[in-house]
Design a binder for these strands. Structure first.
Length: 400
DNA sequence: TCCAATT
């Protein structure tokens, strides 16, 4: 007991050192919950795997760690899990694409972490200890998951499903019940609105085997769950390692942008964002993109009188940008809106199969005045051979 | 041509 307490203390200190966690108390309370509830979230087999070829059986020592913070490095990963016991090997899984953006630009090294990794301990007792100690640990915004890794094999690859159209009332457990008839579920998740916590009707199911996932698609895609009004869509999920360079760039920009929000003053933040862009392009914003005042300002102002603005959510003011070209990317939105003030987020909406812009995007700005000025200036702005339509985002497609 | 679901 005393030894285990000591063990935890050591691991938490390491976590604190690495990630400057807000309070020790928070970690302890998290872990107490974890310990009393036992391992959560999946039905991974913990038993030994029969080895047919006499090779080393690492089913008791090899762990998979999920939901790691994006910016955690291999060294930090090793350091955290090494605080439990001697490691035979460990690997933070990273994207294959390298060098897309200089690390100095974003502060993020190339070969973006995919958010998971493997740790193989020398002693099975340490693997067990790592699960008990670190599973459920909160690091930054993530809650890591530590569990035994399944033996690597081709049959467990591409077994992840994306589910949409779920009834908002359906719980994760109910979703698992629906899918469990097709095989062993490794993980499941329902996405929720960050503010309200209400289900977004979208989720993921990872099966143990790919063929189980295929059967689930055949059996459930287009079907209405019992008592549901609408059919659900079930398809294979996008594989993050197959992300395009463009999507990775976007992720880098957004991650970098988030780093500058919060403690910094708006004014400072604006220049930092501009700096990111300027550095990555090696130049100031191109003259053709510099905002100018447009005669079409009245229309955007009248929309302010409308009732169905999305309004200032916790994040800021959301702006709808229409008539972007299929080749438009996030950087153009940063360049267009950044000069008007604090921009916290931009997104170009793309078709999932072609990855081309669907003609519109969104920009979130912190301050109303700056957002209104950006709209007044950029609505009607000619970008290439297109005239942009810019307004506060509304909740519906049709305005009154 | 007009308002985002992909951990």
């Amino acid at each position: 007991m005393a030894a285990s307490t000591l063990q935890r203390s050591r691991a938490f200190k390491e976590a604190e050192r690495l990630f400057l966690l807000s309070s020790h108390e928070q970690i302890i309370s998290t872990m107490e919950t974890q310990v009393s509830n036992g391992p959560t979230g999946n039905s991974l087999p913990n038993g030994p795997v029969v080895s047919t070829n006499g090779s080393t059986d690492d089913s008791k020592t090899n762990l998979i760690v999920n939901y790691l913070p994006q910016n955690m490095t291999q060294e930090e990963f090793k350091s955290l899990f090494g605080s439990i016991g001697e490691i035979e090997s460990c690997k933070l899984v990273r994207d294959k694409i390298t060098g897309t953006v200089p690390a100095a630009t974003t502060g993020i090294s190339a070969g973006q972490s995919l958010g998971y990794g493997f740790v193989n301990y020398v002693d099975p007792n340490d693997a067990d200890k790592a699960i008990n100690t670190l599973n459920g640990l909160k690091l930054q915004t993530k809650t890591i998951k530590v569990s035994y890794a399944r033996p690597s094999s081709a049959s467990i690859r591409d077994a992840n499903l994306y589910v949409s159209g779920l009834p908002k009332t359906m719980s994760q457990k109910e979703m698992e019940q629906l899918f469990s008839q097709y095989g062993r579920i490794i993980t499941s998740r329902i996405l929720v609105d960050q503010v309200t916590g209400i289900s977004r009707g979208v989720g993921f199911i990872r099966f143990d085997k790919r063929n189980e996932a295929e059967e689930a698609i055949k059996g459930l895609n287009g079907q209405k769950p019992l008592g549901a009004a609408e059919p659900i869509t079930v398809k294979f999920a996008n594989n993050p390692s197959q992300k395009t360079g463009q999507a990775l760039l976007t992720q880098l920009y957004q991650t970098a942008a988030r780093r500058y929000t919060g403690p910094l003053h708006h004014q400072t933040q604006r220049f930092r964002l501009d700096n990111i862009l300027n550095m990555s392009y090696g130049t100031k914003s191109s003259p053709s993109l510099l905002p100018r005042f447009s005669p079409i300002t009245i229309d955007s102002m009248t929309s302010l009188a409308g009732v169905n603005l999305t309004g200032p959510s916790g994040a800021g003011w959301c702006i709808f940008v229409y008539n972007l070209s299929p080749e438009a990317d996030e950087s153009v939105l940063w360049q267009l809106f950044g000069p008007f003030g604090a921009v916290t987020n931009v997104k170009v909406i793309r078709d999932f199969t072609t990855n081309k812009c669907k003609g519109f995007g969104f920009v979130t700005m912190t301050n109303y005045d700056e957002a209104a000025m950006a709209i007044a200036s950029l609505n009607g702005y000619r970008l290439g051979d297109r005239v942009l339509q810019v307004s506060f985002k509304t909740s519906k497609q049709h305005k009154a």
